[in-house]
Nucleic acid binder design. Structure first.
Length: 326
DNA sequence: GGCCCTCTTTAGGGCCTT
């Protein structure tokens, strides 16, 4: 059981920029303001942030695209450009699913520690060859660590070893994912796990947020991990913004008519950022939508974890129970 | 496929994800 403790300082007045905490939204917002230019792939030292050149091809269709440029809109309708730099260690041979890592989140809460400093929150999205996780494959993954800063994004195409039959949806073609340097899922998973580990706080928790994640992204990810003889690390927790959207729709006077990501983007007046249905573009939109929804719902990090988070094993077990009951 | 809603639960339809 999680301690039912809510950190009131997260619940700041509506229409302030910070919602979850005075930390990560502030960080990401300040970071956006500091980095107003869009950079290419070259390294450099900007605003005292030292950049590191990535070790593998960084063309826009290759693995772990280094540079993300995006536009963000905060509550004050300020639109800024931001660049994030993802470095991925492609020489990863070790597979570190550190099950012995001690997570004492409840204890930390009971000790009244600042939960926002213990939780790493990723917004993520996947593009696939279709809806069926049994027959289809992931062809693109994007993550954004909402703490911001260097290496805060991770983005890569994935070789599905099959024909991409739905390029009209996302613009990702068979040719794009079959080129040299595009990793297969079994090769990508250890890299992904290492990347996430590199962003985790000592003794902290990790929360992945996706839109319709409970029904689509997370089960798809579980299926792909299992197919490649991996398991989702047990300390990864997930949350679904679809659930938050339903809460928004219940609010009296809410004019949100649909729970789709596009409807949420339009509802909050967030401009189109890149091509819809590309993973990182949708991640960028979702990060902003999440900010606004948590503001509207006065939702804290602890509230999100206590009321909306689930683990991969919980999701799998629930699914098995339902299948057995049929 | 999973979730939610309802003209419901002994069920069915709509939405959302690619």
């Amino acid at each position: 059981m999680r301690a039912a403790v809510c950190f009131s300082h997260f619940q700041l007045p509506k229409c302030q920029i910070h919602t979850f905490s005075g930390s990560w939204w502030e960080k990401i917002h300040n970071f956006n303001k500091k980095r107003s230019n869009i950079y290419g792939l070259q390294g450099g030292n900007t605003n005292s942030r030292r950049w590191t050149q990535k070790s593998l091809s960084t063309n826009t269709e290759g693995i772990a695209k280094n540079i993300l440029s995006r536009k963000t809109t905060n509550i004050g309708q300020q639109i800024t450009d931001v660049t994030s730099f993802t470095h991925t260690n492609l020489n990863t041979t070790k597979i570190k699913i550190n099950e012995s890592k001690s997570i004492h989140l409840e204890q930390k809460i009971s000790e009244n520690k600042d939960l926002s400093k213990l939780v790493t929150i990723f917004v993520f999205d996947i593009e696939t060859t279709g809806f069926s996780r049994e027959n289809e494959r992931i062809i693109e993954i994007a993550l954004q660590d909402l703490s911001g800063g260097v290496n805060s994004t991770f983005e890569t195409l994935v070789n599905p070893d099959k024909i991409v039959t739905n390029p009209h949806i996302h613009g990702i073609s068979t040719y794009m994912v079959n080129r040299p340097g595009i990793p297969r899922m079994k090769d990508l998973i250890p890299i992904l796990i290492d990347y996430v580990e590199s962003r985790q706080k000592p003794g902290g928790q990790t929360l992945f947020i996706a839109h319709n994640g409970k029904a689509f992204d997370v089960p798809f990810l579980i299926s792909e991990f299992n197919r490649c003889s991996f398991e989702i690390p047990p300390d990864w927790e997930f949350a679904d913004t679809m659930t938050l959207a339903r809460e928004i729709m219940k609010v009296e006077g809410s004019k949100l008519s649909s729970k789709s990501l596009q409807a949420l983007r339009e509802y909050y007046g967030i401009p189109v950022i890149g091509k819809a249905h590309r993973a990182m573009a949708d991640v960028n939109v979702l990060a902003l939508v999440l900010q606004r929804m948590t503001c509207d719902l006065k939702l804290t990090v602890s509230g999100l974890l206590e009321n909306y988070a689930f683990t991969a094993s919980e999701l799998s077990n629930n699914s098995k129970k339902k299948k057995n009951s049929r």
